[in-house]
Design a protein around this nucleic acid. Structure first.
Length: 819
RNA sequence: GCCGAAGUGGUGGAAUUGGCAGACGCGCUGGACUCAAAAUCCAGUGAUGGCAACAUCGUGCGGGUUCGACCCCCGCCUUCGGCACCA
């Protein structure tokens, strides 16, 4: 009797895999499979979320390998970012040192988990060999007009003292430190993702292997609105005021106009008038409000008349122009035509400032009456001249056409998506490869001079501009164009840039000459299965799609969409909430591995819930999985000598047939659960059932069919191997095989063995189960009906009742309907 | 406010096409082994009534469709997630 010594076994097989390069891959003629998990930020320690993510990915990778695919399963590090810099400020340790130390620690932990990575393809975004290409991509973007600089009021975190992207402002607060975010005018680098808005939106429909939820979130984020741009002339002025509207049908109901306070016309129109002073005050007040206060929906609408009038282009009525807190400069044209009768916000505003309300749509069978609230439903046009009586949906099209004919406007599309602000006033990121020259202006660093390396002699104060400004050696350079003295750009890139293309680099991770060989990318891309947290549903996944499209357009990427299938895993919870240090409910993977081994940790995390769902941590559940593995260990240990080497199964008894049936249905179930549904929890429970069956069967002692029992044990080991890789390798050896279980093919099942000769069938009366009978699986409907009706118990129950009908579902049930 | 997902025993979760609700695991109860404990093995475990066979009820709530509904339809409730003055 040997004990399940997980420590020894796990170490032994991890070394074996590494020495024999079992999981190393190269491009070949076999069909490829690219399994990818989102690479981590090297914070230092693996948490349960990582364990879950990588365990899921490992099951997929190992399973596909056994299915005969050439599997690419790489790992790397999203190694730039703020925490490294914070550590520098707080503990005086250099970000580079801090990051590499953490990274190595985490790599060790991943190896202890026994994930089947090809470590030869490891990428690290903070390594010059990697960020050289991030910079190269930036220059490609720049050359093709997709990277530009502009001054803009950006989100400014007063605590981090840096600019934040819109995406990093959560509920008006800094994503990282929770401080209220303000505004500041700065020169910033942007990527022109809006040029790709339409394609990013359209192609979402091609992503058949993505969860609907994620696709919907991306659609909403891109936020396409179809409408019209309409020109309003201004009384006593030459200029035209452009507005964007999704409801051109309501144009006859426009009774005033509202501009964003930042709209350039506002100061122009009020300059030197009696309105000027108040307008300035109004703008100042808004500026002091944070984004959160200004945009919260429950904030009362506030506005100010600026003394000018516009002309409604269809009714030619004079309408007053206001500015208001609820109109945003960066959506549409920064100007809104207000239709109080049919828009809730406009209605509220009109009531407050006593502006006219003209209904232009009425409900089909309703009388015209004074509105108590905005009428936002469909209906028939009224007060709309030529269009009276027309259905408003129809009018929407007709009025758009009418406006276009008269040269008053045109159809347009607006997106909610903004250009991507990528510059950061930070040290620990990819330097933006640009030079500022007094003579030549902004000049890109030539490709041959890449990478622009991060200097080490910087001062970390945590304040103001990028720490890069403190390195003289870095800042002062020569202009690549004219050779005169120039300054380097000191901003670095958002770390989301680094992670927007790493999956392409894995296809040719060590290439020094080019970003990746196109043939390699062509062979491996797209990613067959991408796995990670839902928190990346919008940003990372949208940016990665954007980059792939740009690289495709420039002739580098072989595909337009990077990820064919996406699995978003749920969180790991403890006591109903997310594990976190502040709540003190963190379970450390290290501890669990130490106590129970990696196989148990992996097994539990895969067994406790299906991957997409949140997982509730349970210490007793972990123990249950440990017990199960011990149970598997013991049964093999007990039977390995007993079963012998004979392969011929021969004639089967009833008990043998039951075991054979179990073996084949389990193969079927586990295969389908992994391959089609990612239901690893039910796959594992099926294996547990097989184990229970083997325990029962072995009680037959010498009456066992030994070759069949061997088949049962081997099937059990192979099916379990993607989940508990170390132990199954050991058992595979112990049961008399020399080579790794992963050089073995995944078993197939015999369809005939999954069909039983006799099946249990339910007899129902009026839908209620009244009896169960054993019948031949091949019995006809007529035979089954006859059998059911003649059943002793049933005939007693239907005695004297009126038989309405009998429904027969072969192999399942007979339902007798009586009155 | 808008959009989306989910609600099943004491508990994590099964039920794949509308066909036996509660697989598998945890917990609990009882038994075997033991001087004893741990470990292990065996049995039981939705609720109510009954000695029992069995009966009735039961998948958030209220209706509906159907021979038959956790599953489909209508109306609610709760929880979670996303977006949030987007014109």
């Amino acid at each position: 009797m040997t004990r399940y010594n997980f420590n020894e076994i796990e170490k032994k097989w991890q070394d074996h895999w590494e020495e024999n390069k079992i999981f190393q891959t190269s491009e070949n003629e076999k069909e490829k499979y690219y399994a990818l998990e989102m690479f981590p930020y090297p914070s230092g320690k693996l948490h349960m979320g990582h364990v879950r993510n990588y365990s899921i990915g490992d099951v997929v990778a190992r399973f596909k390998k056994m299915k005969g695919y050439n599997v690419l399963h790489p790992m790397g590090w999203d190694a730039f970012g703020l925490p490294a810099e914070n550590a520098a400020i707080k503990h005086g340790i250099h970000p580079n040192e801090w990051t590499w130390k953490n990274l190595e620690e985490m790599r060790d932990q991943l190896k202890q988990l026994g994930i089947s990575y090809d470590w030869d393809r490891e990428v690290t975004t903070c390594h010059p060999d990697y960020y050289k290409w991030t910079q190269w991509i930036f220059l490609q973007f720049y050359k093709h007009g997709l990277a530009y600089k502009k001054q803009y009021p950006v989100n400014w975190c007063p605590s981090c003292e840096t600019v934040l992207a819109n995406e990093q402002v959560v509920g008006g607060k800094c994503e990282r430190c929770d401080s209220v975010v303000g505004k500041k005018d700065l020169d910033q680098w942007y990527f022109k993702i809006t040029d790709y808005a339409d394609r990013l939106l359209e192609d979402i429909d091609k992503l058949e292997g993505w969860p609907e939820k994620v696709k919907l979130m991306q659609k909403n984020w891109i936020g396409k609105s179809v409408g019209a741009e309409v020109d309003f002339s201004i009384d006593e002025h030459e200029e035209k005021l452009k507005v964007f509207t999704t409801r051109p049908d309501t144009i006859y109901g426009v009774t005033y106009m509202v501009l964003a306070p930042e709209h350039p016309y506002v100061s122009q129109f009020t300059k030197g008038t009696k309105y000027e002073e108040e307008v300035i005050k109004f703008k100042e007040k808004l500026q002091h409000l944070s984004e959160i206060e200004r945009t919260a929906t429950n904030v009362e609408k506030e506005g100010l008349f600026i003394g000018k009038y516009a002309i409604n282009p269809v009714s030619e009525k004079k309408i007053p122009i206001y500015i208001a807190n609820y109109v945003l400069m960066d959506y549409g044209t920064g100007a809104v035509m207000a239709v109080p009768a049919h828009d809730e916000r406009d209605f509220e505003f009109a009531k407050k400032y006593d502006l006219p309300i003209i209904p232009v749509i009425k409900g089909k069978d309703e009388e015209i009456k004074e509105l108590k609230e905005a009428y936002v439903h469909e209906g028939v046009m009224i007060n709309s001249d030529l269009f009276n009586g027309v259905d408003n949906k129809e009018a929407l099209v007709k009025i758009s056409e009418y406006l276009e004919e008269k040269g008053l406007g045109k159809k347009t599309i607006n997106f909610r998506l903004r250009d991507w602000l990528i510059s950061r006033q930070r040290y620990w990121g990819t330097p933006i490869p640009m030079v500022h020259c007094q003579e030549c202006g902004v000049v890109p660093v030539p490709d041959k001079d890449l990478p622009v390396t991060l200097p080490t002699d910087v001062v970390f104060s945590g304040k103001g501009e990028s720490p890069l400004t403190t390195s003289k050696e870095f800042v002062y350079t020569d202009c690549p164009k004219c050779g005169k003295k120039a300054r380097r750009e000191t901003d670095t890139m958002d770390t989301f840039v680094d992670s927007s293309w790493y999956f392409l680099r894995y296809t040719d991770a060590n290439n020094q000459e080019e970003i990746f060989k196109k043939d390699n990318a062509k062979y491996w891309m797209g990613v067959d299965q991408y796995i990670g947290g839902v928190e990346h549903a919008i940003l990372h996944l949208l940016y990665a799609r954007f980059f792939t499209k740009v690289l495709y357009d420039l002739g580098y990427s072989p595909i337009e969409e990077p990820f064919d299938n996406l699995l978003t895993q749920g969180m790991v919870l403890k006591d109903g909430t997310k594990m976190s240090k502040s709540k003190g409910n963190v379970v450390s993977p290290e501890e669990i591995i130490k106590t129970y081994g990696a196989d148990t940790a992996r097994l539990f995390i895969l067994f406790a819930a299906p991957p997409e769902r949140d997982l509730e941590w349970s210490d007793t559940g972990v123990e249950g999985c440990f017990r199960f593995l011990n149970r598997v260990w013991r049964v093999v240990d007990e039977l390995k000598d007993f079963i012998g080497d004979e392969k011929e199964i021969g004639i089967l008894t009833k008990e043998d047939k039951d075991l054979e049936y179990m073996i084949h249905t389990t193969i079927k179930k586990v295969t389908e659960d992994i391959e089609e549904r990612f239901n690893f929890n039910t796959a594992i429970s099926a294996i547990m059932e097989l184990v229970n069956e083997i325990y029962k069967y072995k009680e037959l002692g010498e009456n066992c069919n030994k070759p069949l029992l061997r088949q049962g044990l081997e099937t059990m080991i192979i099916l379990l191997s993607p989940f508990a890789p170390h132990m199954t390798e050991e058992l595979w050896n112990n049961i008399g095989h020399e080579r790794s279980v992963y050089e073995n093919m995944w078993p197939t099942y015999d369809v005939n063995a999954t069909v039983k000769d006799q099946v249990e069938m339910v007899i129902q009366i009026n839908g209620k189960v009244r009896d169960k009978i054993e019948v031949s699986a091949t019995a006809t409907k007529e035979e089954l009906e006859k059998e059911a009706l003649s059943n002793e118990k049933i005939s007693a129950l239907i005695e004297g009742k009126k038989l309405i009908k009998v429904i027969v579902v072969p192999k399942k049930l007979v339902n007798i309907v009586i009155k």
